[in-house]
């Protein structure tokens, strides 16, 4: 786990972060930050969960090959974000997760968000983007088998991932702007970002439709050929 080499301390921290540190931060935030507590709590939860996931990945012994392949997929995601309008990022993350596992999926999603925001603008939303894309990867990795078997399921998941991604990011915007969570404001924000939502969902659908088979074949081939 990040920076800490002592194994016992690692284990203590692994349990302490979700069960002690997070509640403590939530309570402290609610006391100190008054009306901004929703924002603070959501931010702390997002940042800590990203850290926890990454710490888990750091602990695990991943093969060198898998690590390099993850880096390549991350680079593809970043390059893909430069394509105007249709972004293949989510599709690439999902495919990576399906063939290289949940951890690789999370790492690709989180790192793609962190790195590409150096070109597209860093902000407090980076933590949420990292979590959102990382979780999409994690979930796609967890349901790799059914996704590989059924193309319809894969495409539906892609559509859903686009919709959920946009709606989660809207929650964050509303929390940042308003006092607490205003449902009316949230609905207005969803309506305002509807074009984006549709664009995300459609581009996920299209890229999964185009890429799933060739991408899958190539990754599968590499897996069989080199035993990744």
């Amino acid at each position: 786990m990040l920076m800490i080499r002592n194994r016992m301390l690692q284990n203590v921290l692994r349990w302490a972060i979700p069960f002690v540190l997070l509640p403590a931060l939530v309570i402290a935030g609610a006391v100190i930050f008054g009306e901004r507590r929703h924002l603070f709590i959501s931010f702390a939860a997002a940042a800590l969960s990203v850290l926890l996931f990454l710490a888990g990945i750091e602990r695990k012994k991943t093969g060198t090959r898998r690590l390099v392949l993850t880096a390549i997929m991350t680079a593809l995601c970043i390059a893909g974000r430069f394509i105007p309008l249709c972004k293949p990022v989510t599709a690439v993350i999902m495919l990576t997760a399906m063939y290289l596992g949940s951890e690789a999926g999370f790492l690709t999603g989180a790192m793609a968000a962190l790195l590409s925001n150096f070109y597209f603008g860093q902000g407090p939303w980076t933590a949420f983007q990292m979590l959102a894309w990382g979780l999409i990867g994690w979930i796609a990795g967890a349901m790799a088998e059914p996704l590989k078997r059924s193309r319809a399921l894969l495409l539906c998941t892609g559509l859903l991932a686009g919709v959920l991604y946009s709606m989660i990011m809207d929650v964050w915007t509303v929390l940042w702007y308003g006092e607490g969570f205003d449902l009316q404001l949230y609905l207005a924000k969803i309506l305002a970002s509807l074009p984006h939502l549709v664009l995300y969902a459609v581009s996920n659908f299209l890229f999964l439709f185009w890429l799933a088979k060739p991408f899958g074949e190539k990754l599968e081939r590499i897996r069989i050929k080199y035993g990744v």
Binding site: L2, M3, L54, A55, I57, E58, T62, L67, V68, T70, A71, I72, T74, A75, L76, I78, A79, L107, M111, A112, L114, L115
Partner: peptide, 22 residues
Amino acid sequence: GRLSPKLALVLSMAMRYVALLG
């Protein structure tokens, strides 16, 4: 890299691959 060597490695390789892929 100070926080996590493995992540730093993935990050630096990803940056290199962005240019290399181009």
